[in-house]
Each structure stands twice: as structure tokens, then as C-alpha cells.
Design a protein around this nucleic acid. Structure first.
Length: 608
RNA sequence: GGAGCGGUAGCUCAAUCGGUUAGAGCGCUGCCCUGUCACGGCAGAGGUUGCGGGUUCGAGUCCCGUCCGUUCCGCCA
């Protein structure tokens, strides 16, 4: 800290070798301990705390004035550093062996009583958000914001050292093809036309590759108008990366180094690289998720061999149709309560288990006895095989699902996570299980749109080995050169090698049902750019908020964003979004179709 | 759009099966206190139990509706 008129030192720096010196400190009154005669004040700034002592015999007027100090007043003190009396040292403070005997006091700004305690956890999210500037004043939040800065800074330094150039791209751009809902901005100078806020700088970063920049990055704000979650905000930050003359392995190695530098800066730990890799197909088969949490087992087992010759009609029919019978063993969870069982059933149905299947099938071994609605229909050989294959032991419970592979994976994946949650398996875990999921499918069929849609985005490159399938129309089995990096079940980021040839890109648009006319209107710039010597390129984007959240040990990205939105995408502090008057809309050639709900006289007002 | 959980003093929470005047800690106000660091002591103020309706002799508690927060599903290139 550079000394100035307000202070000569910060509140965390005074040590025994300052004894005898005169110092000037400024900060907030953290707490007061008024003994009538002597008064102690803990003075706090962002760096820490120093105890200030007011004594009548030192300066009667100043000591008198100190009686009126209250928590969060902003004050400046001048005083003499003294060693604390023997036995009154405080080892909880870095400055706890010394104190400042105050000779001058200046109240820079009195504070009203705060709406909540700064030194206690707050459960009322409304209040936290309404007074976010006070919430941020709390040590934990202050630390989170500073940690985020360190992480971001480390990322910049790392990428700079790797030859990456930070480039800003437009915030006002065009709506995104496919994907999430866009935030729209009316264009005043072009009546009836609209900008959209970027969901990601996707096309721009590819065009920067065509521009010959070769290595680009950006700490980019992105916007998606979808419903929120603990790990999703309508505006969020990505570390956006793109490079030319590069392959998947190069990007993976780069990002591993990048993440290592961020975790080192933010948490002081060395994470082991390289990260394990798993194909998408394997992730779905073993964990029922494309972002598996590998901190615990309970993996999915395929039981086709066990029931190959079964007489149990349901399983037999399923297997004959080419569908699957699979199960997970939840070790030690045989003591599941009825309430938990009901919850799993609901969740299984939500995940796609047919309503005709009333209950999630299970077998549990309790007190040496196998309990199961299914047990009686299995042959002895099948029982034995199930026990062996699933390692079914005392206290375990196994859940079975039969049917189409995607549904079974989905159901068992969800059950697996929920059981882990119920068992609090990862509660005190400090494990950081990084993982690359690779070989994503290029396309997925959307029953809703009755068409094929891009799993990643329409610029993703099909795996060279699968181009023939693409041309043959075997869309379901075309793999993409796309990859996600996952940590403890959270998707930290994802990317792909891109299409850089205009003919392949046009073909891809065709598969996605974008007509030549639409291509001309929406994508002529990028298709044309690809005709002027576009280099092979690819990249990835990391979710900075999620990374900061995980490094800070938080469970919501709101805890690492200075001014986040709440569940309804509102900011309670500024009361945003807000209504605008007719004149402002008229200038934009906009008219709202929104109709206020009819208000009864008794209609309740919102929580005031 | 759907489901779960929550909403009681400024804050964090309690209030038995529906039954007296809705309590406690912290904070706040006043007084006392010269070595505390969650200082201590005495006294005091502070409540439309989110809002509206219903059942009941009686509702913080039960029912219906609604608002707000939060988590999850849907949604999220």
C-alpha cells in the first residue's frame, strides 16, 4: 500500500518492530469494547484488523469522542504503536501482539445501523441482494471476489505467455442460430431491426482465425435468456480461446496447463495433469451422464449376459428388442427410507422411466435376507450372477432399469447422483476429479423440432473417420471433434475443432435444415470468409464463474459474482429490470404486448 | 411451465395435538464499567407471524389462493 494522507499503513501490517512509531490508519469500526474508561476498537480494512486503544489519560477529548463510535463507522486514527500488555495478546489477529494508542481521531463518515450482521451467515437472500454492497463487505465475499481476480489474472498471464492475444468482440451483434434464447436489443437507427447480445463470441473468434491472428483469447461476457440455476446466470463470463493450426490434443494440453495455473493462483494447489479422458459413449454407459462425477463409484452395470436366457418376460422382451437391462449397486444404502424411495421413484419417472413401471426395481440385502419384488422371478443362476456381477453384499441395494439405452442411462445416472446426495458421499470430499469427455456425437435428433440439431454447435467438425456416415445420412453415429472438460460433475468448459471449409460448412447447415436462402442471409459472411484461405482451427471456452465457484468452495456462482441476478433474473438492489416509459419505446419503434394482471382490490403487493 | 423446501422482532431461530399476553440469543436505546478482543452488568424499546380468504368457540399452527426467496426438472449452440 502506498501511504497517503489517509493512512501510512494498512490494518494488517503493524508488527512488533513498529513499536514506538507513530502511524495513521483508516478503515471501518469492526467492533467496540467500551469499558467506560479504556475503550478498544477493532479497526478493519480489506487487509485485516488492528486494535486501537483509547485512554482518557492519553487524550481525554479523543477518548470521550470514542464512546460514540459504532460498528461500520469509517474513521481515521493517528497513534503510537505499542506492544500489548503481557497476557492480552490476541493470537487470532495477525497484528495481535501490538496495538495503536490513539492520539487523534477523525470520523470520516458515520454509519447507520446495518440491516444485518456482517460477521454472521445470512439466510435471507433477498436482504443479501438488496444490500449487496454490504454483503460484499463480509470477509467471505470479499475473499471470493479477490480469489476470482487472482484466477482471472493467472489465466491472462498464462495465455499471454503462450502467445495468445486478447481481443474484444462486439456485444451488439446478431441472434445466434439454434441454441439458447437471445437477449434482443432494438436498433434505433434501423427501425424494426434488432441486435442480440452474444451467447458466445463464436463466429467472431473463428473470423479472427481467418484474420490470421492464430491465437486469440477473451475474458468474454456471454448472455443467454434461459431459466437460472445455482450454476447458471443470464450473463456469465467465459474464458474464450481459439487457435489455428492446432489439434484436439494441443488444445487439451493447453487447457490443462491453464486450469493448473488458475487452481494454483486461486487455491495454492498443484493439480495433476494430464487429466483422464473418457469417450462420451463410455461416460453415458458407466455413469449415465456426459459430465460424470467420478469421485465415487456406483457405476452402471450392463446385465445383458446375466439375463441372456432369462424366462422373466419383461427383461426377455427388452433384450430381444435390442434394448438394455442395467443396474447400479448403491453400496451401504439398504437402509433407504420410504420417503427416499418415493423420491427416487419420482425422479426416475421424471428422467424417463415409463409410467407403466410403477416402482424402480430393486434388490437389497439386509440381515442376510434378499428383499426384492424381483427376486422370485429370477432363476438361481441369475441370482448368483447378479450377486457376483454387482458385488451385492450385506447392506447394499441394487436398482434395475430395463428399456431403451438412452432412457436407462438417463434414469440410472440421475438415481446415482441422487443416492450419492442422500448418502452425502461427497460432502466432505476435497477431491478434484478432472476429466475430459471426448468423441461427442455431432448431431442429435430433436423430436420437438423433428429435425437433427448440432450437439455442440453448427461449426463443429465431424470426426474425419465418420464423414462417410455423414454423407450416407447415418447422422446418429457421426462423432464430432468436440470435447468437454469436467470437474466433479460440473462442466467447466467445452470446445471443438471447427469446420474451416465453406463447402463442408454449407453441407453441415444443410443437414441442420438451414436452407441455402437462410445460409445466404444469416451466414454469408462466414461462408465467404472460409473461401479466402481459412486456416484449420479450433478452440474452447471455460466457464469462469463455475471455476471460481469450485476454487472458492462455494455451491453457487452467485457467491463469486459481485452483482448477480436472482432466480428470476432480477437485481433486487437496483430493481432491474424496470419499466420504461412510452416515449423511450417509441424512439425504438417498440410497443409492448404485455398485459398487467387484473388487480383485485385485495390483490397483495409484493413483499415490501 | 412443473415439483420440493422456506417466509415469525433489525438479524439468526424457537413456539408441544389448534388453546393464557408469540419467546430466546445477537443487534438497538439508556445507564454503569480502565485491559477487552463474541468484553461484562442493569434497565428498556421492538411483532399486521409475507399477503388475501376459509374452517373453528379459538389459527403462527389446519385448508385454499397468491407473492417472495431458494433448489431441482423442463430449458440451457
Amino acid at each position: 500500500m502506498i501511504p497517503n494522507i489517509y493512512r501510512s499503513l494498512d490494518c494488517n501490517s503493524i508488527r512488533p518492530d513498529h513499536v514506538g512509531q507513530n502511524v495513521t490508519l483508516a478503515g471501518w469500526v469492526n467492533s467496540t469494547r467500551d469499558h467506560g474508561g479504556v475503550i478498544f476498537i477493532d479497526l478493519r480494512d480489506r487487509e485485516g484488523m488492528t486494535q486501537a486503544v483509547f485512554r482518557p489519560e492519553e487524550n481525554k477529548e479523543v477518548a470521550e469522542a470514542s464512546h460514540d463510535l459504532r460498528a461500520e463507522d469509517v474513521i481515521q486514527i493517528v497513534g503510537r504503536v505499542e506492544k500489548r500488555l503481557t497476557g492480552t495478546e490476541n493470537d487470532k489477529l495477525a497484528t495481535g501482539t501490538v496495538e495503536v494508542v490513539v492520539t487523534e481521531l477523525k470520523v470520516l463518515n458515520k454509519s447507520d445501523v446495518l440491516p444485518f450482521h456482517l460477521d454472521r451467515e445470512l439466510s435471507n437472500e433477498d436482504l443479501r441482494m438488496k444490500y449487496r454492497y454490504l454483503d460484499l463487505r463480509r470477509e467471505r465475499m470479499n475473499k471470493n471476489i479477490r480469489t476470482r481476480h487472482k484466477i482471472t489474472n493467472a489465466a491472462r498471464n498464462y495465455l499471454d505467455a503462450e502467445g495468445f492475444i486478447e481481443v474484444e468482440t462486439p456485444i451488439l451483434s446478431n441472434p445466434t442460430p439454434e441454441g439458447a434464447r437471445d437477449f434482443l436489443v432494438p436498433a434505433r437507427l434501423h427501425g424494426g431491426h434488432f441486435y442480440a447480445l452474444p451467447q458466445a463470441p463464436q463466429q467472431y473468434k473463428q473470423l479472427l482465425m481467418v484474420a490470421g491472428l492464430e491465437r486469440y483469447f477473451q475474458i468474454a461476457r456471454c448472455f443467454r435468456d434461459e431459466d437460472l440455476r445455482a450454476d447458471r446466470q443470464p450473463e456469465f463470463t467465459q474464458i474464450d480461446i481459439e487457435a489455428s493450426f492446432i489439434q484436439q490434443d494441443n488444445i487439451i494440453a493447453l487447457v490443462e496447463g491453464l486450469l493448473a495455473s488458475m487452481f494454483k493462483a486461486g487455491r495454492g494447489i498443484d493439480i495433476p495433469t494430464p487429466f483422464p479422458r473418457m469417450t462420451y459413449a463410455e461416460a453415458m454407459d458407466r455413469f449415465g451422464s456426459d459430465k460424470p462425477d467420478t469421485r465415487f463409484g456406483m457405476e452402471i452395470n450392463d446385465l445383458a449376459d446375466v439375463f441372456a436366457n432369462t424366462e422373466f418376460k419383461i427383461f426377455k422382451n427388452v433384450l430381444e428388442k435390442g434394448e438394455v437391462v442395467r443396474a447400479i449397486n448403491c453400496k451401504g444404502f439398504a437402509g433407504i427410507t420410504t420417503g427416499q424411495m418415493n423420491r427416487l421413484n419420482d425422479l426416475a419417472h421424471e428422467a424417463g422411466m415409463p409410467a407403466a413401471v410403477k416402482q424402480l426395481a430393486f434388490i437389497k440385502l439386509e440381515g442376510g435376507e434378499y428383499k426384492s419384488p424381483l427376486w422370485k422371478v429370477f432363476s438361481d443362476a441369475e441370482k448368483e450372477a447378479v450377486i457376483k456381477k454387482l458385488d451385492l453384499a450385506e447392506g447394499d441395494i441394487v436398482f434395475f432399469v430395463a428399456g431403451p439405452k438412452d432412457m436407462v442411462s438417463n434414469v440410472l445416472g440421475r438415481v446415482r447422483l441422487e443416492v450419492a446426495n442422500m448418502m452425502e458421499i461427497t460432502k466432505d470430499s476435497t477431491a478434484l476429479n478432472f476429466l475430459w469427455v471426448v468423441d461427442f456425437p455431432l448431431l442429435a435428433y430433436s423430436p420437438e423440432d423433428q429435425s437433427w440439431v448440432a450437439v455442440h454447435h453448427p461449426f463443429t467438425r465431424p470426426n474425419a473417420a465418420d464423414v462417410a456416415k455423414l454423407e450416407a445420412g447415418d447422422y446418429a453415429n457421426v462423432r464430432a471433434e468436440a470435447y468437454d472438460v469436467v470437474l466433479n460433475g460440473y462442466e467447466l468448459g467445452g470446445g471443438s475443432i471447427r469446420i474451416h471449409e465453406s463447402d463442408l460448412q454449407a453441407k453441415m447447415f444443410g443437414v441442420l435444415g438451414v436452407t441455402p436462402e437462410e445460409q445466404e442471409i444469416k451466414f454469408s459472411h462466414i461462408l465467404q470468409a472460409f473461401k479466402f484461405g481459412a486456416p484449420p482451427h479450433g478452440g474452447l471456452a471455460l466457464g469462469l464463474d463455475r471455476i471460481a465457484m469450485l476454487i472458492s468452495g462455494e455451491e453457487s456462482i452467485r457467491e463469486v459474482i459481485a452483482f448477480p441476478k436472482n432466480n428470476k433474473a432480477a437485481d433486487l438492489m437496483t430493481d432491474s429490470p424496470t419499466k420504461v416509459d412510452f416515449k423511450q419505446l417509441r424512439e425504438l419503434y417498440i410497443q409492448s404486448t404485455w398485459k398487467e394482471k387484473k388487480k383485485d382490490d385485495a390483490a397483495p403487493e409484493a413483499n415490501a
